[in-house]
Design a protein around this nucleic acid. Structure first.
Lengths: 201, 201
DNA sequence: TCAGCCATGTAATGGGTTACATGATTGA
DNA sequence: TCAATCATGTAACCCATTACATGGCTGA
């Protein structure tokens, strides 16, 4: 009853989740998010993190501890309370499954590709190919690192998540390659004549 | 100069893009979005579509035509203007590539899986497996349908987009299967004892 | 008769971003 | 000396959703 933890936004749980690893300041959280959940969820603006921490504190899900430091600004370190831990667990296994809606700007542009030139689509796809290939290499590095750090306790979840990223990066790469091939094919067959012409009207 | 089309949100271009296929009313656009870009981008609320159309009209990118109907409410049909068509093309091939950031709720939950029970993660993953398998079948149906409708003109872009969806659905399926296997493995090895216990603290 | 489609909107709320503001310390 | 790091926050803005409102027609 008291504080209903049910209607908090996803972001709240993302922050609670990060704090489940260790107590952190707002600044720390931003760093941490950039190099963890930023890869498969998103990384909040720092202003939002601070706002979020205030909310969680008010809801009694985290505690705030003022930490004085020498030679650098003081900080406020946040840690989960028991009810914060509970809310997190409840969110993970207590709330219903909902489909991932994934929003691809690139696919949107390709879908409307009839209104542009095939060349520019190919260029976009090639950039995606490059970007995702790099990402894949990065993820595979992380995977090895994770394995090397011992088959221990909680690395399993990190590992599974990284592998998810790897699967999706590969999908993006394969798709880009296929699409480029098909667009180049089209250029070759119906080449010559008015190049960037749009047919309708 | 006049109306700078550069700083419009993505949504504006999504609507312009749909109107590039044919003139439509707000109501039509909602239907159309649900069964096209809704699969790989997202489907706006209807209230937003109407708002968007007002904006595009004010910017001179679409025209509005009042159409009277018998036996059902009148409607306003929107069509691209030449500058609307131009803005769309400019957005597709004139604006820079930017990485797709994909936001997976499921991966977020898995990442924080140490705070929950493996069983519930497995359950979530199985639901995802089912959901994505169904989606895959649907997409493959659309693919065949698209191929059957003639190798014509603009079906190529639709086809490429559908295939993108297929690649990502397969990735999601493969990942889910892998993850389930690994979590079940973990249950088997370290089973017995305190089951839903979280270690830290 | 009653649900559901057709058709368009307003109002309230909230999630999230960017830009602005401050200020000490450290290393190139 | 100058940029970057550490550290926290305010203000303005806007994208987007949900809930509410209206009302005739159609088919089971």
């Amino acid at each position: 009853m008291a504080t209903q933890t049910t209607d908090l936004p996803q972001t709240s749980f993302a922050v609670l989740g990060m704090l489940s690893f260790q107590p952190m300041s707002g600044y720390d959280l931003k760093q941490f998010a950039d190099r963890s959940i930023g890869h498969f969820y998103w990384s909040p603006a720092k202003s939002q993190i601070y706002a979020e921490l205030r909310r969680l504190k008010k809801a009694g899900l985290v505690t705030e501890q003022h930490v004085e430091q020498e030679n650098r600004p003081d900080k406020r370190v946040y840690a989960l309370t028991p009810s914060g831990r509970e809310a997190l667990a409840e969110w993970i296994d207590g709330s219903d499954y909902e489909k991932d809606v994934f929003k691809s700007n690139l696919m949107l542009r390709v879908f409307f590709g009839a209104s542009a030139s095939p060349e520019s689509l190919i260029s976009l796809l090639k950039q995606n190919l490059e970007s995702e290939t790099e990402k894949l290499a990065q993820l595979e590095g992380m995977e090895q690192q994770c394995i090397a750090s011992g088959p221990g306790h909680d690395t399993l979840f990190t590992l599974i998540t990284i592998r998810g990223g790897i699967h999706f990066a590969r999908a993006s790469i394969n798709w880009s390659q296929d699409a480029i091939k098909e667009l180049e094919e089209r250029l070759r067959t119906q080449a010559v004549g008015a190049p960037a012409q749009r047919s309708s009207r």
